[in-house]
């Protein structure tokens, strides 16, 4: 397969799920510039891993794994790059201010998630996105039982933090 065809195939694979990457960025980075940086790094890691993707797991599971792994293990050591290519350039239409709801509840939720430890953050993200215990277990590498126990604790911590933030 030539390079252009491979690139087109890659874009077609991740395009329908790009919201997933944005949600991981929203969970693990808290400034626009950090989110852009993480978004770009996740795209890069997905592209690097793409030749080895054989479709054994669901595309979304594969993408969650790489995005969460990048956020947790890699971002800290990655030197910040000047964002010459920003998210606005990446997309056909820039975000308009009207499309971003100005809602205190969103700020409370983001702050509550931000107060959690990385593993709890990952669990909460996957839970809020309606993933099953089995999928969470495939992404995190722990048993479904452990996912259940840990998720209950993470939810309790999230609720406590949300009440504190209100």
């Amino acid at each position: 397969m030539n390079r252009q065809a491979q690139q087109a195939e890659f874009v077609a694979l991740i395009e329908p799920h790009q919201r997933l990457i944005r949600k991981v960025c929203r969970t693990f980075a808290f400034t626009e510039s950090d989110r852009d940086d993480l978004f770009q790094e996740v795209l890069f890691q997905l592209w690097r891993a793409y030749p080895r993707f054989e479709g054994r797991s669901k595309v979304t599971t594969w993408m969650y794994r790489i995005a969460v792994n990048t956020a947790v293990t890699l971002l800290r050591r990655t030197r910040r790059l000047p964002l010459e290519v920003t998210l606005d350039q990446l997309t056909r239409e820039p975000h308009s201010a009207e499309t971003v709801p100005n809602d205190d509840r969103v700020a409370v939720l983001d702050a509550a998630i931000g107060s959690l430890a990385p593993v709890d953050r990952a669990l909460v993200l996957l839970h809020l996105d309606d993933l099953s215990y089995r999928e969470m277990s495939e992404i995190l590498g722990v048993s479904e039982n452990v996912v259940g126990v840990r998720l209950n604790r993470a939810k309790a911590r999230l609720l406590k933090a949300a009440r504190r933030e209100r």
Partner: peptide, 29 residues
């Protein structure tokens, strides 16, 4: 909390990715 999370995600317009810009990011990284 889940409702707030999903409402926010639904409210955010996510325009399609452009292949050239995406590959420019990948190359730069």
């Amino acid at each position: 909390l889940r409702q707030v999370w999903q409402e926010q995600e639904g409210a955010d317009a996510v325009p399609p990715l452009m292949r050239e810009a995406l590959m420019a990011i990948v190359e730069k990284r």
